[in-house]
Design a protein around this nucleic acid. Structure first.
Ligand code: MN
Ligand code: MN
Ligand code: ZN
Ligand code: ZN
Lengths: 136, 136
DNA sequence: ACACTACTTTAGAATCATTATAAAGTAGTT
DNA sequence: AACTACTTTATAATGATTCTAAAGTAGTGT
């Protein structure tokens, strides 16, 4: 299993010890083809199902925020009481399906160039992100 | 005082009884020139300062959500633990100043036309909103 | 292999924004 | 004034998140 070694190397080179718990979390987060949008709660449920490790909720919180600080995860802004995270850490746009409350990544090529004409003196633009709400 | 009568009429015609508390809240929210972006907490502090009515926190919550349901307020999505509201209920874009965590409305004319090229089968676009993060 | 230390995990408690409850108060109506 | 549905309020409950401190472990050096 090559991927596990990759996770271990990535963690070590980030100054994070490759613990059993972190490796299991890496598998769930990064061993997949598409972007993963999740809450702590959904991640926790998946871990209970897919991993034989029993990982405490505190560790899941610790790990997710550790990964966020290393820029391996991005926090996402939504109108819910739970915090969302995104394995796609690039600046990108989303569809939000209001029926299922699911996020779908838009590629930059899916969106025409966005032009912001107004400037705020002394301020620089850090990111431009679009949320497109969709429903049936 | 003409504005107070306006608030009373607006409330009554919305099926909301014009109570002392609701009128005080209307004054803080709508008796101003520019869009107001706020949390329950900031609204509560302003009410304590500006109004001699002592309005319970429960009533502030009740009223804000009543106004939101009548489409007199809009809930806003931000990376914080508190819920934000906006007196500008139209679909519009924002600057978010990451230093002060303040929102600034963008006029539609401040933003070039946004083109979403991708379609999701069976889904319709409800709104397109841009968040432009800025900082020093 | 062993000891050492800093990092990590964990159960459980604490925090705090929000929501629910139910009793007292009030607006609108007759 | 009496009536009733709506509203306010103190207070409790909820639930996501954060904190605490004790037990466990990875990496390092011997
Ligand atoms: Mn929220
Ligand atoms: Mn949030
Ligand atoms: Zn995404
Ligand atoms: Zn706004």
């Amino acid at each position: 299993m090559n991927k596990k070694e990759n996770f271990i190397n990535k963690l070590r080179s980030s100054g994070l010890r490759p613990t059993r718990q972190r490796i299991e979390i890496c598998k769930v987060l990064y061993d997949r083809k598409k972007t993963f949008h999740f809450t702590i709660d959904t991640l926790s449920k998946i871990l209970r199902k897919k991993s034989k490790e029993r990982i405490s909720l505190a560790t899941i919180y610790n790990t997710v925020y550790a990964f966020k600080n290393k820029n391996y995860l991005k926090e996402i802004t939504l109108n819910t009481n739970k915090t969302y995270f995104d394995t796609n850490v690039t600046s990108h746009h989303h569809f939000l399906d209001e029926n299922s409350n699911r996020l779908i990544d838009l590629k930059n090529s899916d969106v025409g160039k966005v032009k912001i004409k107004r400037k705020i003196p002394g301020k620089k633009i850090k990111s431009i992100e679009i949320l497109v709400r969709i429903s049936d």
